[in-house]
Design a protein around this nucleic acid. Structure first.
Lengths: 248, 248
DNA sequence: CGCGATTTGTGCACGGCTTCACAAGCGCCT
DNA sequence: AGGCGCTTGTGAAGCCGTGCACAAATCGCG
């Protein structure tokens, strides 16, 4: 997914950020909100980096892509930076999100408060099971997937979350795309084929655990044979090339 | 590649894989199981790559790190490859997992079938709320977090999932580490500080949506001003750097 | 007004990952 | 047995991301 620049005349505010930076901005944003609640007016790159769990140099480079945002010798203005990041992420208005699949996981997601507090609004719930259609969840009524086109249009939905069983996911994705959705967050353990221009991000619990399993396996093998290289230190690592998501 | 092993004394089978490769192996594994169910005995790198949503060259390079696995002119033996990957990921036995936080999301995770079918077993549920302790979920009884050390020891748990509110996550993580857990999957929207040697992976729903939001924002800005560069093509992309980072 | 302390912004080098392109190997068919 | 087509495995090149180290900028204070 490459995106060539808009051209010589640079777009008003489209820094054309590196993907890795985009993936970190939300984390900075969360940390900033936390700092704002604690009454901080400004933060140093060092402080914000610590709160977001990254290197300070990386943080500065990331923020530098947004244009000059900090003040040398002082740091970053918290509220100003929040505004800038929200602007870049397109969070200036609450985006409507559709949730398809109201099963085990779907229920939990529908009740997740983090949606509302971080720029989104679940605008509609869908399920293919007629037995579930009509059910009330968190103030919303479950509708049948056949109603997708209509509702997506009405509510101006461009982002959808798929929380169906794997075998239904591709079909749902096709219908979502046909209805006009251009971004999908997929919780089903399968790959989705979508047309160019549609973004898909995937969250797979089992994959995350399997990656951890690998490291466990490696760790136990290391401590078993060679005298383990015990390094002290503090501060953990959180890796991951792509981000992932969720919550309570 | 020949027998050379990076380490001094070569570990039995520890290719010391690139992190990016490790993050993709689970996806290959899932695709392979799917192929096996469909009766395939062998797969070409092209076929498997398509099923896993990646480039075939990347797939071959990834698999080459496991030692010779394929047969030129033929492809990869499906069941053999499954065994090899499971071996490397440490999935030869079902790993016990502890789940802390039996709220909205915790309930859903406790009932997630993908755990059992993909190498894991939820061995225990915990919550700090005494009102929830004792509750039966999916055949398991919710225990109080104070029992962590005891249960982790008994069940040989090394991996834990945190599904608590953000404000409790760090405290829970500390207790988990103290109890002997060395890998954590964190669903709470906050960064965790853990000692060296403990792995943390994070899944944050809001972050995923915000990343999608950015791309939506960019797309709408592009289609608005310049005559959109409409490229045809098919086949979608699933990123995550990681995963991408994404994982991702 | 100027100096020093502080912190940002960034040039640069390094390492890892991705992709291409092709030689090496394998099976099948004649 | 030999050749042919197919597929893997991998060298090499390029790209992206990271982290260091430092110059530039700003504030506060004497």
């Amino acid at each position: 997914m490459s995106q060539q620049r808009t051209g010589p005349t640079d777009g008003p505010d489209f820094p054309d950020l590196p993907e890795a930076t985009v993936a970190r901005l939300p984390e900075y944003l969360r940390a900033l909100h936390h700092l704002a609640e604690d009454g901080h007016d400004t933060v140093s790159s060092e402080g914000l980096a610590a709160a977001a769990g990254v290197n300070s140099a990386k943080l500065r480079k990331d923020l530098s892509h947004l244009g000059r945002t900090g003040t040398r010798g002082v740091g970053y203005d918290v509220t100003l930076l929040i505004d800038q990041i929200e602007q870049v992420l397109g969070l200036t208005h609450r985006r409507a999100v559709a949730l398809v699949g109201v099963g085990n996981l779907g229920h939990a997601l529908a009740g997740y408060a983090g949606f509302g507090t971080r720029g989104f609004r679940i605008a509609a719930l869908f399920d293919a099971d007629h037995g579930r259609v009509g059910e009330h969840i968190n103030g919303l009524i479950v509708r049948h997937v056949d109603d997708l086109p209509e509702v997506v249009e009405q509510e101006s939905i461009s982002i959808a979350v798929i929380a169906t069983p794997a075998h239904a996911a591709q079909h749902v994705a096709d219908r979502l795309v046909a209805a006009g959705v251009t971004s999908v967050l997929n919780f089903a353990p399968c790959v989705l084929n979508v047309p160019e221009g549609v973004d898909v991000r995937k969250v797979d619990l089992a994959i995350e655990l399997q990656i951890l399993s690998f490291h466990e396996h490696r760790k136990s093998a290391l401590t078993a044979l060679p005298a383990a290289v015990q390094k002290p230190g503090r501060v953990g690592m959180a890796n991951r090339l792509g981000g992932e998501a969720v919550a309570t």
